[in-house]
Simulated scan of single mutants.
Amino acid sequence: MTDLPLTDDPRATESLAARYPDLDRLSPHALVQVFADDQLQALQAVQAAVPALTAAVEAARGRLEAGGRLVYAGAGTSGRLGMLDATELTPTFSWPPERAVPLLAGGVRAMREAVEGAEDDTAAGAADVRGAGVGPGDVLIAVAASGTTPYVLAAAAEARAAGALTVGLSNNPGTPLLSAVDCPVLLDTGAEVISGSTRLKAGTAQKIALNILSSALMVTLGKVYGHLMVDLRASNAKLEARALRLVQHATGVPEAEAEVALHAAGGRVKTAIVMLRLGVDAAEAELRLARSGGHARTTLGELE
């Protein structure tokens, strides 16, 4: 069955999903199955966007290596997903929180409640970008399922005018956001099971794409050694145990030796690994890592 537009709106995310006219009559099991099956389209949309995401990673890497920031701009669900991605970079990769700046239409209050009219406020979108001091060294990731959100469009335009690299994620083809940014990423998820509710598979596709984009950037910036999350800094019991396992796995030393190195390294996994692998103290390990831009593999002389 062909999805039908609610009006003459061309955006697929605003169409009626013709397959589910009696959604409210389904049994709980059938209802859960419909939602689970529909979510598969989110992954398919991300798979189709791999070339665009790759281009965004390649374009953004140099600015971040030079000290630039990741700035996220969005409204509603899209903005909340951006804020989540920005927030998780610090505990996962020790990314400085001041270098992950989330801009959410309506401000922090909009994380928990709808702020009426915030997504339509173009002046606020531009002002928030100016207020964050976005400039040529930064990367702005603009996220809008519709691809037409005024706040997001204004933020992207302001950031681009300031010389920042702009990346745009939209769930509709041919939308203004994809034309307004340097690196457009289309996540074509189509009509939603609950018509117009883009917190469903459109939001899922955005979450996956943001995870991929930021994680790939962190790997290229030396935040991972092999497949190990070595920029972890242990700050509680769970993370201390995880850090110990990572150091042991990377070095092959006994638990007691790994624990001593981690303590001397102030809980920094990557520092402890370099200490143990090269037989140096914490200060020397930090110095060598700094010289290699924080890349453990380079520090250890493992690159060809």
Rank of each mutant, 00 (worst) to 15 (best):
L84I: 09
R80M: 10
D85I: 14
I194M: 10
K201Y: 08
Y72I: 12
D38Y: 05
E255A: 15
D121R: 11
N236Q: 06
A86P: 03
L187H: 07
A18R: 07
R288C: 02
L200I: 13
G226C: 04
V57H: 12
A45H: 11
A234R: 06
H295C: 03
P21N: 00
L31A: 04
L169T: 07
L31P: 00
P176R: 00
T166E: 05
Q41Y: 04
A42P: 04
R288M: 13
C183H: 02
R233L: 14
A86H: 05
K223I: 11
H249A: 14
A45S: 15
G293L: 03
A114N: 13
V224K: 05
G76H: 04
L228E: 13
R69A: 09
L244S: 01
D3P: 09
A154N: 01
L104G: 01
V32W: 06
A159H: 07
T189S: 02
D120Y: 02
R99M: 12
F93R: 14
T298H: 07
R233P: 08
S78L: 01
G267K: 01
M218Y: 12
D9Q: 03
S27P: 04
P21Q: 00
L89T: 08
E255G: 11
E14L: 09
W95L: 11
G82L: 06
